[in-house]
């Protein structure tokens, strides 16, 4: 029976949302092939208990490799464990999240197995027994439909596209023997420096509030942060103009040389809408633009726009959202 692997990314013993998205995409492929989903989580202590929930999202088999050596991510260690696993089980496809970890790991796994890899897929399906994907290229200016010919077909799925869907699977939980991975890797994570603030990452948040040069001064980003806080579960994003000016960190940059985001809702505030910016956010479900220039290109892609001075509009918007969210 076909077997679809999903990498259930864990960090600090917790399965991340993007890991559930990978399981959801794998479930879709498994249903197309009449196969099973096998979710795999690697990490330190606590990962096993967390991994049980993969069953809720459609995992038939759950394998957990828990060990001190794998508590922090290692490209070499993780790739070696997963490639061995994929080979031994003869999986037909391997789905990774297109996260920092997933996009580092998946190409290594594919190269180790000598098979093809497609990144940032926005749709997956099965045709004639083969895995067919849709993925944006040229910064979203074109969309490619591609067939992955290798076995397993290795791919990563873009964040926020495959919303975790409850679809109970058998969820047989089994340990994965990772004792052979003792460490001694050539690359070791020494430290993780958390970015200031507790807001979600711009590439993963369901709502992004992005600001541009129209904010005039870095201090005025307080308006953007306040709106994000009022919305809850929203990340702050930025245009390259303000990142280049040093107002905001590059991690917040949206666009061709920043992050590609597909949130449910994207606010572009004081952002003109240059092609390189649009490249990073045009697949958002809803776009709201606030700009004083009625001819700003951002209005061509925005679902809803308000023309006017952001310094008057944004505080009012924040207030209104606070009011309705109580």
């Amino acid at each position: 029976m076909p077997c679809i692997f999903a990498f259930a990314e864990a960090r600090d013993g917790e399965i991340r949302e993007v890991g559930l998205e990978a399981v959801t995409a794998a479930r879709q492929l498994a249903d197309g092939m009449g196969g099973t989903v096998c979710g795999v989580a690697l990490g330190g202590a606590g990962t096993t208990a967390e991994a049980k929930k993969l069953a809720t999202y459609g995992a038939d088999d759950i394998f957990v490799g828990e060990s001190g050596a794998l508590a922090t991510y290692s490209p070499e260690g993780y790739a070696s464990v997963l490639a061995r696993f994929l080979k031994a089980r003869g999986c037909d496809a391997a789905v990774f999240p297109a996260s920092a970890m997933g996009k580092d790991l998946a190409p290594r796994v594919a190269a180790r197995l000598g098979v093809g890899y497609a990144s940032e897929c926005t749709a997956v399906g099965v045709e004639g027994g083969r895995v067919v994907v849709t993925r944006p290229e040229y910064a979203g200016k074109v969309v490619a439909r591609a067939t992955i010919t290798g076995k397993p077909a290795v791919l990563s799925v873009r964040g926020n596209v495959f919303a975790p869907r409850e679809s109970p699977g058998a969820g047989r939980l089994q340990p994965l023997d990772v004792s052979a991975e003792g460490g001694g890797f050539g690359a070791i994570v020494r430290e993780i420096q958390a970015a200031a603030g507790e807001k979600p990452d711009v590439a993963e948040a369901p709502i992004v509030v992005a600001g541009g040069r129209g904010l005039r001064e870095p201090e005025n980003f307080k308006l953007i942060e306040d709106l994000a806080d009022a919305l809850g579960n929203a990340a702050v994003g930025a245009s390259r103009a303000v990142v280049d000016s040093g107002w905001r960190p590059h991690a917040e940059q949206v666009g061709q040389t920043g992050k590609t985001v597909s949130p449910q809702l994207y606010f572009a505030i004081g952002i003109s809408g240059a092609v390189q910016h649009l490249a990073g956010m045009r697949t958002a479900k809803y776009i709201v633009a606030i700009n004083k220039d009625p001819d700003a290109p951002i209005f061509k892609v925005a679902d809803f726009g308000i023309v006017g001075d952001l310094f008057e509009i944004v505080p009012r918007l924040t207030e209104e959202i606070r009011r309705i969210r109580g």
Partner: peptide, 11 residues
């Protein structure tokens, strides 16, 4: 760069 921070890697 990783989500929500920076990873310091020694190679």
């Amino acid at each position: 760069e990783i989500e929500g921070g920076t990873e310091v890697v020694e190679l």
